[in-house]
């Protein structure tokens, strides 16, 4: 099965060791909640797992192979930055994103997803005119659009209202039940209904 394994990772930032000898594995049907104080290296770890940056030591493998394009095709990564162009509308942003990620998507599907996220009526407005929470919702629409095996979500609940948080948590739950794997950082406790959540604590050293 498609398993993401990280072994003996270490990461240094500004001459400070964020984490070392960190190993973790993420298998299908697993939800991992990565926790830790600010500056503990959560984002750095997620970026390493996604393949955006390289660890100082250690390896990340997927299906026993080093992570490559094949992995990234099965991945949805959402970082701090929403990845939306401020000058384009929600629908344009998502259409272009789908084209880049080789996703065939019809206009109807896009509108359905926007409806789920209560963004109907805002789809033609440039994203910069939307509120922070609405922008986050546009970014999170990707979770509905791309069929994938693994999600790496960095603080997905930032700026979302309670309905939004519940919506995304429900979406994560469905995805995990269908055999997806999710690793998520959040300062809020995850409230999944009868679903085991593995917690990884990054301590963060002073």
């Amino acid at each position: 099965m498609a398993e993401l394994v990280a072994s003996q990772l270490s990461c240094m930032k500004r001459d400070k060791v964020l984490f070392e000898s960190l190993s973790l594995s993420l298998s299908p049907g697993q939800l991992v909640h990565l926790r830790g104080p600010n500056g503990a290296g959560k984002t750095s770890l997620l970026r390493i797992l996604a393949g955006l940056s390289q660890p100082d030591t250690g390896t990340v493998t997927w299906n026993n192979r080093a992570i490559d394009n094949e992995f990234q095709r099965r991945l949805v990564y959402l970082g701090h930055k929403a990845g939306l162009s401020a000058g384009l509308s929600a629908i344009e942003n998502l259409t272009f994103w789908c084209a880049q990620h080789h996703i065939r998507v019809s206009e109807t599907t896009l509108f359905e997803v926007l409806e789920v996220l209560s963004l109907v009526g805002l789809e033609e407005i440039p994203v910069r005119l939307l509120s922070a929470g609405q922008q986050r919702r546009v970014a999170l629409a990707r979770l509905w659009l791309k069929s994938s095996d693994i999600w790496i979500l960095d603080e997905p609940f930032t700026a979302l209202d309670t309905d939004g948080v519940a919506l995304i948590q429900a979406r994560c739950e469905t995805f995990v039940r269908q055999g997806g794997a999710v690793i998520v950082t959040s300062h809020q406790p995850l409230s999944m209904k009868d679903m085991p959540v593995s917690v990884i604590e990054l301590e963060g050293q002073l």
């Binding site: 094949e70 990234q72 994103w97």
Partner: peptide
Amino acid sequence: EQLILSGL
């Protein structure tokens, strides 16, 4: 970031 991860 999204472009780098797009597989293109």
